[in-house]
């Protein structure tokens, strides 16, 4: 009945300083002004995330988790403080350079998949390549390889509406990998999926992390995802509550029901 996680012993906790830093934040603050009321979403976060790490970010809703997530993804700019992505100050980038960054360096995976409804599976995967200026033929070949990687090669011509949630999320993962990014930002990637399909997504993410050295950052509540993370980061009230290596915490995962998970 115990969840079978092959990678449990494979990742030792990385001592800080030895591995290169890919994302660093300094005194990150975000204040939302709503009329007379000021909301402090982030109250100064200093954190370093390492290259090729698998990190989970946890926190109750309203904790500033999403805000933090948007900041390190180059989707929003801080009120004060800085975000360095691979030593590049995101605040210094103009709109076109940010688009470049989002296109090639960061892959996004959303809870609601966010596939373009009127495109086929393959077209969805090749959209970021089109934005990066990859020739159509090359984009198609690369798209098919990526679909093969997530096990959807046979379904390349299907529209999102004809696919299950798990298949849609796998397509989204293929899309996020389109331009070979250094970072994968996953916002509750398995939030809308059942346990079994969630597990499939987890193994794909872990595989990408292991085989291609992609830094995977997940905002999640899924304990099994936490289970395969290298480090876990808790956010509470706009500050970092706790950072822990996987080995320092105990995660208990089990399964509900019998044959469903086999």
């Amino acid at each position: 009945m115990q969840e079978n996680i092959q990678t449990q012993q494979a990742v030792p906790s990385a001592p800080s300083g030895q591995r290169p830093v890919i994302i660093r934040t300094k005194g990150l603050k975000k204040i939302y002004q709503m009329g007379q009321v000021q909301t402090h979403a982030l109250r100064g976060i200093d954190v370093e995330l390492y290259r090729s790490e698998f990190i989970s970010i946890l926190g109750p809703s309203g904790s500033g988790k999403s805000t933090f997530f948007n900041m390190i993804g180059g989707l929003d700019s801080p009120s004060s403080g800085r975000v360095f992505i691979d030593e590049v100050d995101v605040a210094q980038l103009n709109a076109v350079e940010l688009a470049f960054l989002r296109c090639r360096k960061i892959g996004y995976i959303f809870q609601t998949y966010n596939l373009v409804q009127y495109m086929t599976c393959l077209e969805n995967v090749t959209v970021p390549m089109a934005f990066a200026g990859v020739p159509t033929d090359e984009a198609r070949d690369r798209g098919m390889r990526l679909l093969d990687l997530v096990g959807l090669k046979e379904r390349w011509f299907h529209k999102p509406i004809e696919m299950s949630g798990g298949q849609q999320q796998r397509t989204a993962i293929a899309r996020s990998m389109a331009n070979n990014p250094a970072i994968l930002l996953c916002d509750e990637p398995t939030g809308n999926l059942d346990l079994k399909t969630g597990a499939e997504i987890h193994s794909i993410l872990k595989r990408l992390n292991k085989e291609q050295g992609v830094t995977v950052i997940c905002a999640t509540h899924d304990h099994r995802l936490i289970n395969i993370s290298d480090r876990i980061l808790w956010i509470r009230d706009g500050t970092i509550d706790r950072i822990a290596n996987r080995s320092e915490i105990t995660v208990q995962t089990g399964s509900i029901g019998g044959h469903e998970n086999e």
Partner: peptide
């Protein structure tokens, strides 16, 4: 290892648009 280098995003040709 992947390093990050930021350039200007390419402009899509009109045909693609």
């Amino acid at each position: 290892m992947k390093t990050i280098e930021v350039k200007n995003q390419v402009r899509l040709p009109l045909g693609k648009c």
